Measured scan of single mutants.
Amino acid sequence: DLSGKLIIKAQLGEDIRRIPIHNEDITYDELVLMMQRVFRGKLLSNDEVTIKYKDEDGDLITIFDSSDLSFAIQCSRILKLTLFVNG
C-alpha cells in the first residue's frame, strides 16, 4: 500500500535515488542526514548542500528549512529533489 507513503526521488549529478519515506514529519536536518547516507561518498557532512524540489510548474524551489520541506511534501506524494553541492 503506497498511499500512505511518501516517495523521495533525489538527484545528485547524474545519480538518482528513490527512497520511500514512512514518516512524513521529517525535519530538514533529518532530510540532510538521509541524503548524506543515500549519497555516501558523494555528499560529505561538511559539504554545503542546497536542496531544491520541483513544484507543479516544474520550477526548482529551494528548501531552506523544515517548514519549506513540509510544504513541499503537502504538494506531492512524490517529492523530486535535486541536490547541489557548493563544496
Rank of each mutant, 00 (worst) to 15 (best):
V38I: 10
K42M: 05
K9R: 15
Q11A: 04
I73F: 07
P20E: 14
T27R: 04
D15K: 06
D68S: 04
C75P: 04
I21V: 11
L79V: 10
I78E: 15
S66D: 04
I26V: 10
E14V: 09
D1P: 02
M35C: 07
Q74A: 08
E56I: 09
I26R: 00
R18W: 15
L12D: 01
R40A: 12
G87W: 09
I26E: 00
G13C: 04
A72N: 01
D68C: 06
S66F: 00
V38R: 04
I21Q: 02
L81C: 04
V85K: 12
L33K: 11
R18K: 13
R77D: 14
E24I: 09
C75S: 14
Y53D: 00
I16L: 12
A10T: 03
L43G: 03
D59M: 15
L60Y: 09
E30D: 11
D57H: 15
H22K: 12
V38P: 02
L31Y: 01
T82H: 09
D29N: 07
L12G: 01
I61A: 14
S76P: 03
T50D: 15
V85D: 04
E30N: 11
Y53G: 00
V38C: 09
D1F: 10
L79D: 07
E56V: 10
D57L: 14
D68G: 12
L43E: 03
L44S: 13
I21T: 07
D15T: 14
F64V: 06
H22M: 10
R17G: 03
V38Q: 14
R17H: 13
D29W: 03
Y28F: 08
C75Q: 13
L83Q: 01
D65V: 00
L31H: 00
M34L: 08
D25G: 07
S45D: 11
Q74Y: 07
I61R: 15
H22A: 11
I16H: 12
M35K: 01
A72T: 02
G13W: 04
G58R: 03
E14W: 06
D65Q: 06
G4F: 12
N46G: 14
L60I: 09
D25W: 04
N23P: 08
K5P: 12
I78W: 07
S66C: 06
L31T: 02
G58V: 01
G41Q: 05
V32G: 05
G4V: 09
L81D: 00
F84L: 08
N23L: 04
S76Y: 03
S45W: 05
D57P: 03
K54A: 15
K52D: 02
D1N: 12
S66N: 10
L2G: 02
G87V: 08
M35D: 00
Q74E: 08
I21W: 08
E56G: 14
I26K: 00
M34H: 07
L43F: 07
S45F: 06
L44A: 07
S70V: 05
L12N: 01
M34P: 01
M35N: 00
G41W: 06
L43H: 04
Q74R: 12
D59L: 12
E56T: 15
L43I: 11
D15N: 09
L81M: 10
F84D: 12
M34W: 11
D55Q: 14
S70E: 05
P20Y: 07
L69R: 01
K5L: 05
M34K: 08
E30H: 05
I63K: 02
V49F: 08
D65H: 05
Q36D: 04
G13A: 05
Q11M: 07
K52L: 05
K54H: 13
T82C: 12
I73L: 10
L31A: 01
S76C: 09
H22E: 10
I21D: 03
S76L: 04
Y28M: 05
Y28C: 02
D57E: 06
Q36N: 08
H22S: 12
V85E: 06
L12S: 01
T27I: 01
F64Q: 09
V85P: 08
T50A: 15
S70F: 06
E30V: 03
K52H: 09
D29M: 08
D15G: 02
I78P: 13
I73S: 02
N23K: 12
D65Y: 00
E56K: 15
D55Y: 04
M35E: 00
I21N: 03
F84K: 08
M35W: 01
L6T: 08
I51T: 00
R40W: 06
L43N: 03
S66A: 03
T27D: 09
V38L: 13
G4K: 10
R77M: 04
D68W: 02
I63P: 01
